[in-house]
Each structure stands twice: as C-alpha cells, then as structure tokens.
Design a binder for these strands. Structure first.
Lengths: 274, 274
DNA sequence: CAAATAGTGTCTCTAAGACAATATCAC
DNA sequence: GTGATATTGTCTTAGAGACACTATTTG
C-alpha cells in the first residue's frame, strides 16, 4: 500500500516499530562531591578532595566490581529526569546540576546485550550528603578521585576509599568539541566501560569548572570566597592567588552580613550567588 | 534463585532484558554548510550564508513537512557511526566533524511511539557538496538559516530555500554547561521537535566557532585567511577587523606558496591548518 | 604573640580591539 | 586609475597574574 495515500490516522495505527531491533537504554551518573578532609592543625583550613559515588555490584556481570549508579530509562520520563531519579534513589541526595557527558554505545560495551548509556555528571554538595549520613557497610561509597597523565601518554585513574584502591589505565583518543574520549587499557576493578565514562566526565567537569557559575553547585547557599576558591582549585588541581580570585569572582557573588566563626584566624564574610 | 550463587555464565544466559520495554533509538543530524552567494560585483568577494540540510517527509506523520536527516541505530554501530552513516547516505557527502548535541527524549516527541534521538551537528564543506551536485527536485535541500531573538524574549528560527520559508517560534529554557535548550511554541512546517534540535545545535555551533579549530572543517584543505574569517563571521554573525583576525589565527595555520588568482584585487596567499 | 586566613591596593605584562598605512590585482 | 581585498605595524586599553601589605581571629 502506498503510504502517500494513507491518512495520518490510518498510517499511525498501522505503524509498527517492533520489527526493528531495539537497544536497552540506560543512564550512568558520575556524581561529583568535594569532600573536606580532617584538619591536622586547628588554625589551618581543611584540605579538599574531589570524590565520586560508586556502587559495589552484587550481581553478575562484574560481580564485586564497582560501578557508576544508573538505571533504565522509563517510557514516561526524559533521559535527564531518569538520571535525576536514579542518583536521588541511589545516593539519597538531590543533585544541584546535571551535565550531559555523552552517549556510550559501543556494541560490545555490556556483556548482557545491546545496552547503550547516556552519561551525566552531577554535582552534589557535601552539606547535603552529610545530612543523609553514610553507612560504612553500604554498597554505595564516595571514592576520592585522582587522574594523572603519565609520561608515555597514558592516563591513570585512581579511585580510593579507605583500603580500597581501584586503578584504571586509559589512553586519550582525542578531544572534539570539548569532550575527550578515552580507550580503556586496564579497568582495574571498575565495571563495564565506566572507567572511560568517569575520565570523560572528569575532563568535562574541569572544562566547565573554569566557569564560576558551575562552582556554586558544590557549596551550600552561603559560603566564603576561600571555600569557593578551594572548589575551583580542587577540581582543576591548580593554585590561585586569593587576591586575584576575589577580584574575578566578585561580579558573580553578593555579600551577606554574616561571618564565619571559630576558625583559628580572622573570620570571613559569607557570600551568596548573585 | 540467589544471583550471588550463580556463576557468571549461568547468569548471562538466564539474563533477559526483553521484559523491560525499550525505546526505539535514532539519531538526527543538523548538517551545517556555509554557502557562498553570487557576486553582484566582480571586485567584491561573495557573501556567505549558513545553511542546513533538510529532507521533505514523504510519509506520515508530518507528511510534507521538512525534517532533519537521520535514522535508526543498528546493533553493530555506535551512535556516532550511525550519524556518520545516515548523513553520508542522505547528503552524499562526508562530514569533517560530528559534534554531539544532546539526547532528545520527551516521551511525546514522536507520535509514532517511544522514540528517543541523539542529535549531532555535522560540518560539511561547500566544496564537497558542489562535487556531489544538487537536484532541485530532490527531497533533500540546503536551507539558509536565520535565528534572531525578539524583544519579547522569544526567538524566531527562519529556514529558507528558494520560495520555501519555514518559520518556527521558540523560547529559551535555559543554558546549562554550554547547551541551550528551547521550547517550541510554533513549529512552522518543521517536523517533530526538530526546530528545537536545530536551535540547540546552532547555539552550540556558535559556542565552538569561537575556537579556530572548528572553522577549518567548513573549508577545503587550502584556504585564504579571509575565507576563514568569513566562516567565523557568518556563524557568529559578527564583524572582525582583518588585522586582528590574522594575528590571532596565525598560530593555527601554515602558509603555502600558492596564491589565489582571478579575484578583482590583490591575490591572497593560501594557508593550511597547522 | 604566633600562625593562619581575610581582605585591599598596585605593578607589570599580555592580548584584544581600533586604526593607519601600504601592496597588488582585474577591469 | 579605481575599487576592492591583502598585509603589516602600532597605539590604547582591559584583564590576568604576581606580590606587598594590613586586619583579625584562636590557642
């Protein structure tokens, strides 16, 4: 029957996509949080570490490995809404930002079958995680992240939580339009292609962390300028002179009339995002 | 049966994703080309217009409307490879770059059912399109694109090809991490949610067009610096002083010993991408 | 008071934009 | 020669980074 001669109604009712094979569609979320370490000196401010949430797999495949939180897309939600729901369910916290990272669709990426994933990076403030509390025996834990380029051109991704240390070896495949993709050479206890997703997300986060707007999502509503500065320094792994940082960030913040107290040094004024 | 007690082999063979409903997965490609208009004066260089490829729908739904080229993901290819294949099939030309735009997954976006789309922007040089040739009666045509913000905050997307003029009204929903999303208020003869995809892709293209690396993909291997400058000016809709453009772009190009000829003015040296 | 962070002021250098001036071609 | 683009050089200004200096807190 010639399609052009059908009415739209006739056409839609006769339409059947089931004859095409379909992939399962999931999302994986790289949830970033900046964790402050314990003070070793009452006067010094605490050091920060960038960390991500991983879940220990209790089922095959990759049983016992650590994986990104995520799950299947439902028919009544958008991909972003799905990511929001999954990270809320798994971490118990609400992300303040969701950044699309890309689609991971290598045909063999999942041994269970044809499963593609749209990855997101999310940003979660330490404050909201503290409110939920943590459970040391839980299958979901925050791993400190370290990502360094070696001399031979490969990159080592190290994720550590207490005694657990996961190390993956990756090789950069190229940067296009602000997204760097990686080939996994060794996965080191990280499930599926998640080491590559993490590396891509971290690279993307570093890109956007030059933009001050992104930094606020890591902090509570009121913050000091040095806390904001430490967020950027932690993500980008750089050192900034406070005077210059204050000058540049000044147009993005408004001061409040509150101050910190109890630190072993001059109190700092609290600011809000403008 | 407790999953933890199964071997991986037992588990994989018993695994069945068919119990979950799956979406159909497609890609849509916003193929950009810079088209040079006819000279009205033998001395003047031709003006440039940014254009995109649209295909006239010959079937329901949206019969007779214009849509982005695209198609279904196959089990043996990645999303990006799928986009490459589809644009090659439909335009007959090979894109020099594919930029991920985002996933469009509103549950009701396609009246045929649950179909999500990963959109890409591709960049195609006018030279390669000219080699293929055009067919005025063809269902695939290059539409000049115009996108302007109105006083009331809405944006008008105008696509024109000869007598055909498609006009969509969109409203910005916000910019996050360099991707601006739009709500479609009037689609004006553009099928599905493609007006929104086009607007998002154009906004993203403008973002990356500040980066000189992107500009080369619109041109043949050897080009003049003013051709390169006109590419950036056309995309960003701005005017740049030639002296300043040359200075900034100089570190990205290498000069050849060839020159243009036949223009009604001083010949220009041809350059290559460094 | 010692040590740490908070906060201000200023110097230098670089890069972007504006603009002036010269060069070279087709007709 | 005219009118267009090609190409080089320089002036001004805004912004980034470096750094010196003062302020304020807790033990």
């Amino acid at each position: 029957m010639n399609n052009r001669n059908q009415s739209e109604g006739e056409y839609l009712s006769s339409y059947d996509f089931s004859k095409y094979e379909k992939p399962s569609v999931t999302t994986d979320i790289v949830a970033f949080m900046i964790r402050s370490e314990e003070n070793e000196n009452y006067k010094m401010d605490s050091k920060n570490r960038l960390s991500i949430l991983l879940v220990k797999r209790a089922v095959h495949p990759f049983l016992g490995n650590w994986a990104l939180p995520g799950g299947f897309l439902r028919p009544d939600e958008t991909m972003e809404r799905c990511a929001f729901r999954e990270i809320t369910e798994e971490a118990g916290v609400t992300p303040t930002a969701l950044m699309p990272i890309g689609v991971f669709s290598e045909p063999k990426r999942d041994p269970r079958g044809w499963i593609i994933s749209n990855a997101y990076a999310s940003i979660i403030s330490e404050e909201s995680v503290k409110q939920v509390g943590g459970d040391d025996a839980s299958d979901a834990q925050w791993f400190d992240i370290d990502f360094a380029k070696e001399e031979d051109g490969s990159s080592i991704l190290t994720l550590s939580y207490e005694d657990i240390k996961l190390q993956a070896v990756l090789r950069e495949e190229g940067t296009k339009f602000g997204r760097t993709s990686f080939r996994i050479e060794q996965s080191g206890g990280i499930a599926f292609d998640h080491a590559g997703i993490i590396a891509t997300a971290l690279t993307a986060l570093r890109e956007v962390a030059r933009n001050y707007e992104t930094l606020f999502d890591f902090l509570p509503e009121r913050f000091t300028l040095s806390a904001l500065q430490r967020v950027q320094e932690t993500i980008l792994n750089i050192q900034i002179l406070p005077a210059n940082f204050r000058r540049k960030v000044s147009e993005y913040v408004v001061e409040t009339d509150e101050y910190t107290q109890g630190a072993g040094h001059r109190p700092a004024k609290l600011y809000r995002k403008k």
